[in-house]
């Protein structure tokens, strides 16, 4: 039986007067990778950022509908946004390491969330190994994180997210700023991580979506057009819009 980890029900999102998301209903299954695809401006990144309440930063954003992490209502005022973000991690489009050392980038979240001091080094080592970064940085923990290459920085950002053992990882085009080799490394990593985490990823790259996803959601102009297994979306799309997009006949 597939277990629903994360869901949106009747989700509408407005920026000022402009409606960005239109009545989106979607469920994300535990330990699966779901890709959100669609042309620029279709609302896929916006959708992703609703789940960890990143829109809280923009005063003009207004959200209607129900979003749930298992049975927890994400936008309920009684629930702690801090707690939710601890359980739903996020990796951004451009690597955004903290202006601190490599080690501090990883220890930061553990410290603010009061993990026991003596456990921190092991947790960091584990996260770095999971992110395939351990061998590259183990001798230079004190180096400023910004000195790493782009691909390394992005894997550091993934390690920084997994070190907290979240339940869900949201990824917003994590490879768009990277070279093909780094991209490949991160894709491999995603496939390994899904054993422990539920992953939702926004991508522009059809091949990438095909390589890594269990499910694919195609969005267009703020609406969820089609949501199915990766195989169905790419081999037998039900809607013409989807077909045109996955075949590359799209603006």
């Amino acid at each position: 039986m597939e277990e629903i980890k994360l869901s949106a029900h009747n989700l509408n999102l407005f920026f000022g007067k402009k409606q960005i998301l239109k009545n989106v209903n979607i469920d994300f299954i535990k330990n699966q990778v779901t890709s959100l695809i669609g042309p620029s401006g279709c609302g896929k990144s916006t959708l992703l950022r609703t789940f960890n309440r990143m829109h809280d930063l923009s005063p003009e954003a207004k959200i209607e509908g129900t979003l749930k992490l298992e049975n927890l209502n994400i936008y309920d005022k009684k629930n702690s946004v801090t707690e939710i973000r601890k359980r739903i991690g996020m990796v951004f489009q451009k690597p955004n390491p903290l202006p601190k050392s490599i080690y501090e980038n990883l220890s930061y979240a553990l410290k603010i969330h009061n993990f026991p001091k003596n456990e921190i080094p092991q947790l960091i080592e584990k996260a770095l190994k999971e992110s395939y970064l351990w061998d590259e940085v183990k001798d230079e923990f004190k180096k400023p994180a910004v000195k790493l290459s782009g691909g390394q920085q992005q894997r550091l950002c993934i390690a920084r997210t997994v070190v907290l053992r979240p339940e869900v990882i949201l990824m917003d085009e994590p490879c768009s700023a990277l070279d093909p080799i780094s991209t490949r490394k991160i894709e491999d990593l995603i496939l390994i991580l899904k054993k422990d985490y539920t992953i939702v990823i926004v991508t522009h790259n059809m091949q990438q979506a095909q390589r890594i996803s269990d499910k694919v959601a195609f969005m267009y102009l703020g609406e969820l057009i089609e949501f199915n297994t990766s195989e169905n979306i790419f081999k037998q799309p039900q809607k013409d819009l989807t077909k045109n997009y996955v075949n590359g006949h799209f603006g």
Binding site: N52, M54, L57, T82, E83, I84, R85, K86, G89, M90, F92, K94, N96, P97, L98, P99, Y108, A109, I112, H113, C157, R160, T161, L164
Partner: peptide, 17 residues
């Protein structure tokens, strides 16, 4: 840039942190 703020907020840091 806001991306710096998002980095820590997404880790569950409070706004003051």
């Amino acid at each position: 840039p806001n991306s710096m703020r998002e980095a820590t907020l997404a880790l569950g840091a409070t706004q003051f942190e």
